[in-house]
Design a protein around this nucleic acid. Structure first.
Lengths: 227, 227
DNA sequence: GGGATACTTCGATGGGGGGCGAAGCGAGAT
DNA sequence: ATCTCGCTTCGCCCCCCATCGAAGTATCCC
């Protein structure tokens, strides 16, 4: 009813208002780490009562910002899809840039170096990776090169089956700290997955930070480095 | 004071809340047409009193969503920069997609075919253009090819001087109706400028729609078409 | 079954902010 | 100098909604 008022224009205000509440924004920031969180955890994260959080989560779900995964007596919340994650990353980037004054907190540097953007790698490492893939012509423009399959197969990634998914294989995602693109999409997610499986890096608890081990760092450079 | 509370995270809520008010969203939608508008025009557009609009505009300016251009006794408002325009386009895309139910209003089709995205071309024509440029290797990945300069020079666009600007020359911008990228950045703006100058198309009044003439349509296809 | 845990619903409260009109103000226009 | 127009400031109202605690419902564990 209320959205019929304006002439077919998308409900920009509704969507933005959903994100524009402090408690909800904190929840979304928390869930940007990629791990699904329970309602109670999110209430804690947002600093509000469970009942308040419940109402917020209902609205975010209704608005298709979050999705629910029921599991026993828990209700796990995750971002609705990768598109939402990318939009949030972009918003955070803009907010950070025109924020009060550049704050250089202690936890910040780690996030700038490497962090999770929902389910793929962002930060300096993320855009470096994207640069290298393009430099080596494994990615061409917005698409994976035809002759790149063997490379990814050696890495343990089956490009052909990823390409069958509904989700775009390869999607440039604007990085909030670097202000350039890193690799999202199914391939971006698969690469980060391999990085964790191979123990080149680990997740920092309760943070989006990704910490590479010295050896992992070397392996990454050896595998993807252009020269 | 209020933004020091959370640990260095960007003020996502503040930014989104700025956009998340119906009146402000209507103003932003209006100014997405690329033309700078006066405070009074925006008040009319948003359907609020001049005083109310003034308060909104002050907040949007303060938040660096809009910028003011004083001119005589008028104050013209425009989007702060192209980054903001792209972010809004993306938000509108997401809002449209998960909106109530696909509404196919009468004015909609024209917008889907071709429209202005702040200062460059979006819609079917916009992504077609991007596809062709990439197909013909005039744009490679995210950059203009080295040997593309003569082509654009013939079109009356001096790539070298565009490249000197602070603004990125070539920037993929996610299209809300097509869900794929069209060409933004200084080059995207220059191309649309030429399209208007050559009278291949004209702006629909009070709308973001771009209407091509039959001849303009042919010229566009002849110039950019790949085969 | 009983008890604990996870979460939602309900009802009440309060504050932030969006809304308006009237008055103020500054910069052209005459 | 005076008028007019464009916009802002001020004072006010009022509604929306974020918030809470308490009670209700669902699910698991023993």
């Amino acid at each position: 009813m209320r959205d019929v008022a304006n002439g077919g224009a998308p409900d920009l205000a509704g969507l933005a208002a959903l994100i524009g509440d402090p408690a909800r924004a904190r929840m979304l920031t928390a869930v940007m780490s990629g791990t699904a969180l329970t309602a109670t955890e999110l209430a804690l994260e947002a600093g509000v009562a469970a009942s308040t959080a419940s109402a917020h989560l209902a609205r975010l779900t209704e608005g298709q910002i979050l999705a629910i995964e029921k599991q026993g007596r828990h209700r796990y919340f995750r971002l609705y899809d990768a598109e939402i994650a990318e939009m949030l990353e972009e918003l955070m980037g803009i907010a950070a840039r025109r924020g009060p004054r550049r704050r250089t907190g202690p936890a910040d540097p780690a996030l700038r170096v490497a962090r999770v953007c929902y389910d793929h790698l962002a930060g300096e490492r993320g855009v470096w990776l994207m640069d290298q893939l393009r430099e080596r012509r494994l990615i061409d423009g917005f698409e994976v090169s035809l002759d790149a399959e063997p490379f990814f197969t050696r890495l343990g990634i089956d490009v052909a089956s990823l390409a069958k998914l509904r989700r775009p294989l390869c999607r440039p995602c604007l990085d909030w700290s670097e202000r350039r693109h890193h690799l999202g999409g199914a391939l971006g997610a698969a690469i980060l997955d391999r990085i964790f499986t191979l123990r080149w890096a680990r997740r920092e608890l309760d943070s989006r930070a990704v910490v590479f081990s010295a050896g992992g760092e070397r392996s990454l450079r050896r595998l993807f480095g252009a020269d």
